[in-house]
Design a protein around this nucleic acid. Structure first.
Lengths: 212, 212
DNA sequence: CCCCTATCCTGACACTGTCAAGATAGGAGC
DNA sequence: GCTCCTATCTTGACAGTGTCAGGATAGGGG
């Protein structure tokens, strides 16, 4: 079966001068190139407009070249999501590195990293959290996904969280802010300048912290 | 252009006995039938697996019949989303009707309705909040979408909210819980029995309320 | 009774994901 | 050097998709 989404823009003529470089038969690092092209395509056309053939074209290979590395479209998106979760975790670590050492500040920092990632790469964020196209039972995506949000939960515990409610509150607050900001629906916050935005987001995150 | 997602299951033989009822040429209420079929398809195959031809088949009409009523696939999803937002608002009203009269209780009730809708119809919820396929600038979807979440904001004000942070905190908390529950990622909460789940969710929602 | 309009169908097109089969390189062994 | 083996990439095909153009059908006003 198939899906068919017409291009919104007919694409400019794009008359290519005969500048064809002697493209080698073997790419060399096609797997990485496809992942890069896939994220670019995702950002350009969205999850629902994602096309495997378009990714191949962007990487300069034939439409069936991705099959060897990823099996099918689901496999490519699964690999992309796994890599995405690792970078998602890295975004949290980056915030923690420049925050105060006390557990509450570290927890808020993790939440801020959560939000940073969502705002910087909104489509990838939605692939991680709102799509069912990747295979979350995959051998590499499964653990990667679990590790990413588990880190936030660990921080809750370190900050004195004791109940399911404590975990859920902090996670939901970070995730709700991230999702609404990634979707561009919370313009009262997203339109602020970065410093003020960070301040207000940190203040909000603290509300969800375990009551002392 | 087109998309192509293969069916995961080859579908059972489904040998039809010659029970063809004398199907009339004019359906009578095809618009409504298509919206119903569309939501069913959405629930079955997800947003990414949504197919206009499959909707038409489900409604028992030709593949091009929807065009007259909705223009294109985007038009159908836009109409479906608009109706969805109205029911989303109704879910909040239902909770408010059985809650205490004080502003804080009413606000928590609105949040619970927000979550109710997400858990009862997760795919439709994601069409409303995480998809870019509907046209949110449409004449009926635009106002419907705005009214739906604006109601929550209004409740925040009635409950003593004064700042952007107050609005954002309550909205993000309700939305974060709803989204994670709809996606089935917060199993520690979603697997609870309804009464206990409601209690813990209400407790969490109260954390986001404007500080008294 | 005629015609007009809304409604619905048929057929075509370009684009999609996937599969099968062939073409090409790169290296190991000799 | 040469052969052969394997991984990699291409080509071609197929069924399914959204959209458009044009034709068929009903139902109601004159």
């Amino acid at each position: 079966m198939g899906r068919y989404f017409p291009r919104m823009t007919p694409a400019p003529p794009n008359l290519k001068p005969p500048e064809a470089p002697p493209k080698p038969y073997h790419h060399g690092d096609l797997r990485t190139a496809l992942l890069t092209a896939a994220e670019a395509e995702l950002a350009d056309r969205g999850i629902e407009g994602f096309s495997l053939r378009q990714v191949a074209k962007r990487a300069g290979v034939s439409h069936a070249a991705p099959a060897h590395h990823f099996g099918d479209a689901r496999g490519l998106l699964t690999a992309l999501a796994a890599e995405g979760f690792r970078q998602f975790l890295a975004a949290q670590a980056a915030r923690e590195g420049v925050a105060d050492d006390d557990p509450a500040s570290q927890l808020v920092a993790a939440g801020m990293g959560y939000i940073d990632f969502a705002m910087a790469r909104p489509t990838l964020f939605r692939l991680l959290w709102q799509s069912n196209r990747p295979d979350f039972d995959s051998h590499d995506l499964g653990p990667a996904a679990h590790a990413a949000y588990q880190h936030l939960i660990d921080q809750v515990m370190a900050a004195g969280g004791r109940s399911t409610a404590d975990e859920a509150a902090v996670w939901a607050m970070a995730h709700g802010l991230a999702d609404l900001l990634a979707a561009g629906r919370m313009k009262t916050v997203s339109s602020m300048e970065p410093a003020a935005r960070d301040a207000i987001l940190a203040q909000i995150m603290r509300r969800a912290l375990p009551p002392t």
